[in-house]
Each structure stands twice: as structure tokens, then as C-alpha cells.
Design a protein around this nucleic acid. Structure first.
Length: 589
RNA sequence: GGGGGUGUAGCUCAAUUGGUUAGAGCACCGGACUGUCGAUCCGGAGGUUGCGGGUUCGAGUCCCGUCACCCUCGCCA
């Protein structure tokens, strides 16, 4: 193998005349009978190699090269003659006239080639991930991800944070998401759980006097994946002692600013702050996308006058009516609005009343029912000709918010109302600490049960849990939740009260979280933290909509790794050692 | 667990109402060609239409089941 002197993106006309050696993969070959061209690709780019028949040995070897063969070559860097340069290639002004080539490894004919992988199905890409990752797009994502973690580590080092690893084999705490379990051989019948997050360890680290902790931490949640969710994912996990929420937010904002600057050379503006209730009321979401309007407008009082039974019935039952005005939405066909109505039902509303604005008044749909109040409606919604009005109606206000919030996102996408050039970041704060589960009639923690209530709300914890606000903050970027954090409870009595409220008596709480309660008793400082999602940050930076694209070796929706074929059955001897026996009949191959 | 979508050559796709031997581009193999750069030209090979069953004279196409992948509801403290 020749000693590599340059990368394939490195050479230009200043290198003309130099002897160089390159190594990489055959991106494409063009055999002209006499002269043979090879596009040689490495991590950094592509350089054209030319083989002349005069170098019989090298030319003979080059003749046999095919896509994805691995070669090293030596030759002379030459400037291309006038008219022979390739403006599509960064190194298109030069080529390497090769006099020696060594085939380091032949490749089987690949199922697809990195050069022409656009449009190749994801299933085949995941099966041959080692080929897929050779694509420049995937290399760019891997590089971005590295840049991000490097910036994070540098930044937190400068601020005096310690990077500390926490265990992957943890105690199972059945609250929250479903745990991945790992059987213990030494304690047969007992199990570890993989961490859903290092939450409790980092709080213990605060009790341990670390003061500033950070970790790029793998987290595991055994729940069904989504486009932006994977059972195994990565968080930038951090925690600080003696801080206010504002200080954690400032530190987080700082790292986000530096990441966007370092990777994209973008100066993010200062992040505005919005209260949870405002986000829900105006956008129907706790992660509002501020790049477009389509705000939810409460029209309950206006439509009350119209005596449209669908609306009045809901309001009499304690509900509300909200509307969004969709600019240009009148071009949607009846079929399309019917589809929207059907789709929106999954969020709990009975349908989607709509009407269009034409000639300065309402037309079609529910127009005739709203005739008496049309003027007030148009004015309140600032609607004009060509707009579509969509109404969310339910006896439960949160159902209206959810349904219209989801509709808002879908319409913005489909009608292309999103300004793709913007970065709209904001903090959402003042979340309720608890939410009421209608099924069980119990209260549960909206974030997690270690989030501190606002000090002024501690008195009403038991008397009015629904009104308690937590010291919780989420960072939202372009409609995606990127970080979630809070000030924690550091007083064991308060923590015990929260456990009780959530239905864990002292003994159960002690069994599950005894170590945390103990730590709180022995001088735990006030502390708080946050956990930015690394995968989602990289998704935003690289403009990907699929979390699998930013993970080197991701899993499918059924948790399978198509490359390694995990998960897979294990041998009887392994099970025996763990004293495990599958209860289900193993499916035949 | 529920809803929706996809599955045809190595890859991306086509195939009229159920009707002859399931086609095309790229890749592959052979040949030609000394300046291409997604090379070109000539020729060739390549198919369990995801799998199993059913209806039919006849199924890629219709029906039932099943598997895989994608989106989504539930779920995700």
C-alpha cells in the first residue's frame, strides 16, 4: 500500500507536478479502451485518476476495477487542459496521472452505490449500512454529530463541568417508560434496567458535591418508535448545584448558540420565553412552531350568538370553540377538507367544521349557521378572501387545543406556509406539575416526580394539585422539543409529599427511591439541570426529518437492527446460566 | 394493541377490465472505443411478482391469512 499523501478533496492546481498517493473507493470508472478514468472517493471527497496505456501494469489493473473496490494509487498531480476541467467536482481542475495502483480489496457488486443512492429504499440502506454510510450525505451527518459533541465537551469544560459516566446497569423503577431489562446471572431471577435517563444518578452526584456534571448519555426507553423517537437515543445530560432555573437556561442557551455558530455559522437570537398556557392557547401545543401563524383564536363568545347546535351544545357542557384562519386555504377541495375532518377525529374532536371566505363573506360548509355572526368572525380572525376557517369544538378545551394544534402543523406543512430559513427557538416554562389521569382518577407527574414545584405553590400541593406550577423549562426549536429540564426537589420531606400525592406510600417510595431520599437527607444542595436531545439537535442542524438518519446504526420500528439481525434468540446454555425460560413458544423460522 | 401506506430483476420503477412469453433505466457479463466525468455504442444474462392459502378456464392484478418496512394513535415519568 502506498503511503497516502493527500485526501481526495485536497488537491488543486497548486499541486500540479507533485507526486501524490491517494487511497479510497472506486466511485465510478470510465473505460475508453485506451485511457481509463477512475473517480476515487475517500471520506473527504473525489479525485479523478487517469490511467494511460503507456503504464501497462497500472493500466491492466485499472481495467479490472469496479464500483467500491478499495485501491491506493500513486502518480503525478496534473492540471487539466483547457476544456477538460470538471466544474461539478471540487478537484475538477486537476487529475492524478497514475503510474501505480494497488488493489487493496475487491468488492462484490454492491446492492447500491454511494454515488447513486438517492431513492434507494431505507430497508436496503439499513441492511447494508456500511455502504450507506459511505454516502457523502451520511458522512456529513456523522461529521456534524462529531462537531456537536466536540463543541459540547469544550463548552462545558470551560464552564467547569465534570464529565462523569453513570451506570448502564441500573435499578428498575417501573414509573415512566417501560424499562429494558437485563437479567443478573449472579443474582439469578433479579434484573437490572437500562437507564431511561441518568436522572437519579445525576441528582446523587449533586448530593456528592460535584456541583457541575455533564455527560453525553445513552438512554433507553422500551416504547414504540416514531420518526423522531428511537428506543435507544442520546442526551446531553447536565446538572448544576446552587442554581436558579434562569442559570440553567442561560448555560443551555449558551451551548446552543455555540453549536449553531460552530456548525452552521448562524447567530441565534436570544430565546424568548413563553408560558405553557399561552403556548397551548395560541398554538395548541407545548412545543409551538413559531415560523408560521395559523394561531388558534377563541371564538366561543362570538359563535354563541349564532345558535349553531354543534357549537352551543359543546359550550353548554363546559367546552369552547376555537378557530384557525388558513391563508389561501379556500383552494382546498371538499374532498380535502373531508379528509382533514376524518383525520382530526383521532385527537378527540367529533369532526372539523369549516367554511371559506369569498367576496368578503362566509361561503360553503357551516357558513349558513354562522351567518348572523360572520362579520364579527371575519374581523376577529382577520380573515380575507381565499382563506379557510377551521373550527375546533369540544366540551373539553384541551381536546380543542390538541386537535387544532395538530391541524395547524399539518396545514402549515401541506400548504407550505413554513419559512424554512428561520430558526425560531423559545423556552416554554410554567408547566403544570401534575396532570389528572381521567382513567384512573389519579394525579401523575407531567414531567417527572423530581421536579420542584414553584415555592409559592407548595402550600396548595394537596389542596389544589391541578394548579401547581413546576419549575420546569423546555427548549423548543422550530416546533420540536430539543431540551427538557427542571429545578429538582432537594428536600426529602417535600419529595416524600410528592410521592404520596402520586400514590406511593412511604414504604413503596422507600423501596424504589430510598437511595435518593437518603441522599436528600444528608445535605443535598439545591440543584437543577436539563437534558438536550443530541439526536434531535443533529436532525435540526442537518435538516433531516428522520432520527434514523442521524444515528450510525439505528433500529427499525420493530426494534430490529437489519444489519446485525438483532434481536435474536440465544442459546439454551445462556438461558440456563441466567435461570431464564421463555414463556412464549419461539416462533419457527 | 388500533388506523393508513408499501412490497414485481441486484437497485429504482412499469405492466389497460383478471388474459399471449411480466417490461424499462441503472447495475452486472461479453465486445468496441485514447479525454471521459451519471461516458458512449453493440450484444447478453438476469424474475418463487414478500410468503401461504383461496376464487377463476386463467391471478402481479380479486379475496383471506401472514411477514417485513414506513407513517401514525395509544405509549414515550
Amino acid at each position: 500500500m502506498h503511503v497516502r499523501t493527500h485526501h481526495c478533496a485536497q488537491l488543486n492546481d497548486t499541486h500540479a507536478g507533485q507526486r501524490v498517493s491517494l487511497a479510497g473507493w472506486v466511485n465510478s470508472y470510465r473505460d475508453h479502451g485506451g485511457v481509463i478514468f477512475i473517480d476515487l472517493r475517500d471520506r473527504e471527497g473525489i479525485t479523478q485518476i487517469v490511467f494511460h496505456p503507456e503504464n501497462a501494469e497500472a493500466h491492466g489493473l485499472a481495467d479490472s476495477l469496479r464500483d467500491e473496490d478499495v485501491v491506493s494509487i500513486s502518480g503525478t498531480c496534473v492540471a487539466r487542459q483547457e476544456g477538460m476541467a470538471n466544474p461539478k467536482l471540487a478537484t475538477g481542475d486537476i487529475e492524478v496521472d497514475a503510474d501505480a495502483v494497488e488493489i487493496l480489496n475487491k468488492s462484490l457488486t454492491p446492492p447500491f452505490t454511494p454515488a447513486l443512492a438517492n431513492g434507494v429504499g431505507e430497508e436496503i440502506r439499513l441492511k447494508y449500512r456500511f455502504i450507506d454510510l459511505r454516502r457523502s450525505r451520511m458522512q456529513e451527518i456523522l461529521r456534524t454529530r462529531h462537531q456537536v459533541t466536540k463543541i459540547m465537551r469544550d463548552y462545558f469544560d470551560e464552564l467547569g463541568f465534570y464529565e462523569i459516566e453513570t451506570p448502564l446497569l441500573c435499578k428498575s423503577t417501573p414509573e415512566g417508560a417501560r424499562d429494558f431489562l437485563v437479567p443478573s446471572r449472579i443474582n439469578a431471577g433479579d434484573f437490572y434496567a437500562l437507564p431511561q435517563s441518568p436522572q437519579l444518578y445525576k441528582q446523587v452526584l449533586m448530593a456528592s458535591g460535584v456541583e457541575k456534571y455533564v455527560q453525553i448519555a445513552k438512554c433507553f426507553r422500551d416504547e414504540d418508535p416514531r420518526a423522531d423517537r428511537q428506543a435507544e437515543f442520546t442526551q446531553l445530560d447536565l446538572e448544576m448545584s446552587f442554581v436558579s432555573a434562569q442559570e440553567v437556561m442561560d448555560v443551555t442557551e449558551g451551548v446552543m448558540h455555540r453549536i449553531w455558530k460552530g456548525v452552521l455559522d448562524v447567530d441565534l437570537p436570544k430565546f424568548p420565553v413563553m408560558k405553557y398556557h399561552e403556548a397551548m392557547n395560541r398554538f395548541g401545543s407545548d412545543k409551538p412552531d413559531l415560523r408560521y401563524g395559523l394561531e388558534l383564536v377563541d371564538v366561543s363568545e362570538i359563535v354563541r350568538q349564532a345558535d349553531f347546535r354543534v357549537f352551543t351544545a359543546a359550550m353548554e357542557a363546559g367546552g369552547i370553540v376555537k378557530a384557525i384562519c388558513v391563508p389561501g386555504g379556500a383552494k382546498l377541495t371538499r374532498r380535502q377538507t373531508d379528509d382533514l375532518a376524518e383525520w382530526v377525529k383521532q385527537f378527540g374532536v367529533g369532526g372539523l367544521p369549516t367554511t371559506k371566505v369569498e367576496g368578503g363573506k362566509l361561503s360553503t360548509g357551516v357558513a349558513k349557521f354562522l351567518e348572523p355572526v360572520s362579520e364579527a368572525l371575519l374581523s376577529q380572525l382577520q380573515a380575507s378572501d381565499g382563506d379557510l376557517l377551521c373550527f375546533g369544538v369540544s366540551e373539553k378545551p384541551h381536546v380543542v387545543h390538541r386537535a387544532l394544534g395538530e391541524l395547524r402543523v399539518r396545514l402549515a406543512r401541506e400548504l407550505e406556509l413554513i419559512d424554512q430559513t428561520q430558526w425560531r427557538c423559545l423556552w416554554v416554562v410554567d408547566f403544570p406539575l401534575f396532570e389528572h389521569d381521567e382513567g384512573s382518577g389519579r394525579w401523575s407527574a407531567m414531567h417527572h416526580m423530581f421536579t420542584s414545584p414553584k415555592p409559592e405553590h407548595i402550600d396548595i400541593l394537596e389542596s389544589d394539585p391541578g394548579s401547581v406550577i413546576g419549575e420546569h423549562y423546555d427548549l423548543v426549536v422550530n416546533g420540536q422539543e430539543l431540551c427538557s429540564g427542571s429545578i429538582r426537589i432537594h428536600n426529602h420531606e417535600l419529595q416524600q409529599r410528592i410521592f404520596s400525592l402520586l400514590g406511593y406510600d412511604e414504604q413503596v417510595a422507600s423501596e424504589r427511591f430510598g437511595f435518593l431520599l437518603e441522599a436528600l437527607k444528608y445535605g443535598a444542595p439545591p440543584h437543577g439541570g436539563i437534558a438536550p436531545g443530541l439526536d434531535r439537535i443533529v436532525m435540526q442542524l442537518t435538516g433531516t426529518e428522520n432520527i434514523r438518519d442521524v444515528i450510525a446504526f439505528p433500529k427499525t420500528q420493530t426494534g430490529a437492527d437489519l444489519m446485525t439481525q438483532a434481536p435474536s434468540p440465544v442459546g439454551d446454555d445462556q438461558l440456563k446460566e441466567l435461570q431464564l425460560r421463555p414463556a412464549l413458544t419461539v416462533k419457527p423460522d
